[in-house]
Amino acid sequence: MVALSFLAAFEYEGKLSRLSRVDPRPKLIWLVAAMVLSIAYSSLKAQLLIAVIMVLPVIALGGVASVVLSLLKSTSLLFAMVFGLNYVFTRDLSFSLAMGLRLVILVVCFASFFRSTHTSELSDLMTKLRIPFYVTFTFTTAIRFIPTLAMEAQEIMDAQASRGLELERGSLLRRLKNYIPLLVPILVCAIRRSYQLAEALESRCFGYTKKRTMAYGLPPMSKTDWMFLAASVAQSAAVILLASM
């Protein structure tokens, strides 16, 4: 379950940190700004500036340092691959390090955002952004059923393992092949579940009216939220200014 332990870094932590109490709107702006800047600039200097000015303060605010460290540990192989491949093809150490750092920034930014934002806040955010309800609903349903499907997959794996299937044995190719017998039951269960979900939705008057009420939504932004937004804008400006010097 290596892949699932990696996903735990993106799981909502509850209202534990100061970052999780910030409205998702300024957090999304911060995330998009950090992401765009990291992709727009390819120099090591710019990536370091983004990491120090934009990412580290948010890690501190989110109190997610230990999570980030474990996340970096689990993505170290990916980081090494990005760095190694870039170095092999470009022979440019600074550029290769920048590309590796870009990956780290992106992963850490997404983890900080998702750890501090409840999925219902995300759906409210999507509604606020005037994304159609069917898109928002599809997104939240997918998020809602990830743990259920993961549990089901684990049960199927346990059932197969108890009948002698060895998943973690042999070469990488062999291990990948070991997973094939799991795919069919997992897929069949997921399809059956989607059918039952459709049945349950109809039974809860889904589609009863075109004017569906959205009873819950994001509250107005507080002073802290506006301060976070202002800080994100200032951080982005500082990165642009310093990177182009």
Partner: peptide, 21 residues
């Protein structure tokens, strides 16, 4: 498990009522 579609208990209870408009 197949009929709880929302992301919190509170939203789950409101879901059907929201559908009714």
């Amino acid at each position: 498990d197949n009929q709880l579609v929302s992301l919190s208990v509170e939203r789950e209870i409101a879901f059907g009522l929201e559908n009714l408009g």
